[in-house]
Amino acid sequence: MELVLALGIGVLVGSGVWLLLRPRTYQVIIGLSLISYAVNLFIFSMGRLRVDAPPVLGPAGSDLASYGDPVPQALVLTAIVIGFATTALFLVVLLASRGLTDTDHVDGQERQ
């Protein structure tokens, strides 16, 4: 389980970094999205992986150790929403840049 998830994170980061280093804005936006998946998973995994743990509190007196760590989950939850917002911002910037420079190269001009 852990190994699979770690591999998944690795592949997401690898693909994301590759795209981040590409010259086209669209590649970069996809790359950033992939990296943000990986980062969210990574933060989430800091609470360790629990399968079949109850997500909400049961009746009083139940064993606290049976629950997953809620803190990374709370962090990731807002990160997902903020991630959407930054994607939108980046998308608008890249559209505006394309409108102004007539190219989708990240530098605003094609390389000579």
Binding site: L5, A6, L7, I9, G10, V11, L12, V13, G14, S15, V17, A38, L41, F42, S45
Partner: peptide, 9 residues
């Protein structure tokens, strides 16, 4: 980068 993140996590 991918390998590193994998090992780290």
């Amino acid at each position: 980068a991918g390998l590193g993140m994998m090992l780290l996590s």
